[in-house]
Amino acid sequence: MIDPTGLVVAAAVLAAATLFGLVRARRDGRLRDGGRGRGALRFSSGELGADLGERATLVQFSTALCATCPGTRRLLAGVAAATPGVRHVEIDAEARLDLVRRAEVMRTPTVLVLDPAGRVVRRASGPPSRADVMAAVELATAG
């Protein structure tokens, strides 16, 4: 009992999902330019509820229902612990929808790398790599 329509749809969905998955895997967590013009977006320590780092602040948006957030938390906390002047601030996206809207966060984890003045210099949606985070920290420090 083969349903020809269903069979065609199944093949099409699997092909489309494969393409989507490959593109996503390539882009995921890539740290890109801060968004709408460099330095356009800025957060104060009061808004974040934490002091800014002297060199850089790694702001991570997370939710409880995010499978990759704990791994990103470990990575960023590790970088902050190993690099003087760098702080890791984790934001509960559900509790801070004001920040979510301002930063246009669509998924978790989203990571913003802030310079000492709180300007967003790099952002990643999806879990970033350690090398990318270190490079972004250098960029933030260089101002």
């Binding site: 969905v13 996503r24 939710t63 995010c66 499978a67 979510v100 998924r107 978790t108």
Partner: peptide, 29 residues
């Protein structure tokens, strides 16, 4: 509906990508 479910399950199986989890923040917003 089954096609949508296949897409989500396959992305999870092949890439470890959780579509339902991604939808969560959008739902909250």
């Amino acid at each position: 509906a089954t096609a949508a479910a296949v897409a989500a399950a396959f992305l999870n199986a092949a890439f470890g990508y959780c579509l339902g989890c991604e939808a969560y923040l959008l739902a909250v917003r």
